[in-house]
Amino acid sequence: MTFDTALVVERLPQMLAATRLTLGVSLLAFVLAVLVGLVMAAGRRSRLVPARALSFVYVNVFRGAALYVLVIWLFNGLAVATGILLSALTVGVLALTLLNSAYLAEVFRAAISGVDHGQWEAGNAIGLSRWDVFRRVVAPQAARIAVPATGNHLVDALKDSSILAVIAVPELMFVTNGIAQTTFRPFELYVTAAGIYLAIVFVLSWGLRRLERRLGVSGTRPVAPVV
């Protein structure tokens, strides 16, 4: 069997165009997941019963959800149950956000707990408000702890976005499927797609390691297993 390089060269622009959607969907979902994750982490730590209950349920439901099932259910099931019809793209962003925010909430919660209790006490003892103790003393230290695991979820969101091919979001995997089916050259095309994912993960991991070093994360090690 020969490797049809010409085909790859010919189809690469189309695949790279789809890669932009892959990046857009996963980055948007990641940013939203960080924001929701922060809110849910705050909820888990809150003294208020309703906030704690809500975030507990949220985290445990979506952490337990399988992405594939969640995507299919949001796309088909939700409309049947409620009449709410979401576009494939919305479902994609939503599903990736729900899942990753649940995990990130736990990452952030653990990071906050990882800050020495004496730091809260010292901040309180000088008369800082509770918000200032969190914002100025605890959060910057928690952020350092959370960066490596958070970076892993960015990489996860990127790779997981390939699942959105099942609801025809025209991202890299969906477009690759289409080309492979019409050209009957799956080997070349999936190798190329895998290479593109790999290259992005590589660049992201490199960027995250730099960020870690800049933040002085202790014992800097590879954030994301490459692949």
Binding site: D116, G118, Q119, E121, A122, G123, N124, A125, I126, G127, L128, S129, R130, V137, P140, Q141, R144
Partner: peptide, 24 residues
């Protein structure tokens, strides 16, 4: 009450066994 406590705490300095300086 919290605001009042914060005001009073500013007038009561505390030094801890393990320093608790802000490392960042």
């Amino acid at each position: 009450e919290r605001r009042e406590l914060q005001r009073l705490r500013a007038h009561i300095g505390m030094v801890f066994q393990h320093f608790n300086v802000f490392p960042h």
